[in-house]
């Protein structure tokens, strides 16, 4: 599998996309930091941006890469290589590329600006961790779409719809439900609705860092227990992890059965 990973990387590093992604974050990081000169403002801006942008890019890149590496896949399938190794290698190849683009693209300007000497380091780590988790989650979801749809146009369509749903529509429905049923206790509903959307979940991780003062104004006890304690962060991370593992597992299962 390491070989496949190596060649996936190799292949991705040849495409300009990977560099564009890296450069985008690099420029964004430098502009935010050095134009503004305000570390915490930069972190907040990035947090708002990342929970939207990372899912979008990961879904689109994921679908695109899966389709464009079809030839590579077919070539490898006829070789004495385990099928799981091929697909896992490709998954790790693309996620690894996107993740390092994010990590280096933002890491370099922040470290250059003096992140390690500042109090914002924990906020920054939260930012990066949720960014990386979202990369893995949405690439996994994108691969699920691509492996099930031979038609590329349709695959892209579903990918964009998935993003739109998770990033915007879901929260709209969420809000509507909360307002319609405002007479009822909604604590458990809100928490589960949050757990079922990885974008919301990473948003909560960020809220716990940035908006704890506001969140402590909540009256519900369930929320307080969840948000006020370490177990809240722990459960969020666990949920994020299952968002990574489950789509990857369904993708691997499907790819094992797929005919080429």
């Amino acid at each position: 599998m390491l070989k496949i990973l190596k060649y996936s990387f190799y292949d991705l590093l040849r495409s300009r996309w990977a560099y564009a992604y890296f450069l985008f974050y690099l420029i964004l990081g430098f502009v935010l930091l050095f134009l503004n000169g305000d570390l915490s403002k930069a972190v907040i801006t990035l947090m708002n941006l990342i929970i939207i942008l990372v899912p979008l890019i990961s879904t689109i890149f994921g679908v695109m890469y899966f389709y464009s590496s079809r030839e590579f896949t077919e070539l490898l399938l006829a070789q004495p290589v385990r099928r799981d190794a091929i697909f896992l290698g490709q998954y790790l190849g693309i996620t690894g590329t996107l993740a390092s683009g994010l990590l280096l693209g933002l890491g370099i300007p922040f470290v250059a600006y003096g992140l390690f000497q500042s109090n914002e380091i924990y906020d920054f780590i939260t930012l990066i961790v949720s960014g990386l988790a979202l990369t893995f989650i949405f690439t996994g979801l994108a691969f699920n779409i691509a492996v099930r749809n031979e038609n590329r146009i349709r695959g892209f369509g579903y990918a964009v719809l998935l993003w739109l749903f998770m990033a915007v529509v879901y929260d709209g429905l969420f809000l509507l439900t909360l307002i319609i049923f405002e007479e009822y206790p909604l604590d458990h509903f809100s928490l589960s609705a949050t757990v079922f959307n990885p974008i919301d979940l990473s948003r909560i991780l960020i809220l716990l860092k940035l908006d704890i003062s506001a969140l402590l104004g909540y009256t519900g006890a369930v929320f307080k227990n969840f948000l006020g304690t370490k177990s809240g962060i722990f459960i969020s991370c666990l949920a994020l992890l299952s968002w990574i593992v489950i789509p990857l597992w369904t993708f691997m299962r499907k790819s094992r059965k797929k005919d080429f």
């Binding site: 929970i51 809000l175 405002e182 949050t194 948003r203 960020i206 809220l207 969140l215 909540y218 009256t219």
Partner: peptide
């Protein structure tokens, strides 16, 4: 109006 909606803070929607 509906305090529970606070959970949607910072959402794109």
């Amino acid at each position: 109006r509906t305090p529970e909606t606070l959970i949607l803070l910072r959402s794109l929607f």
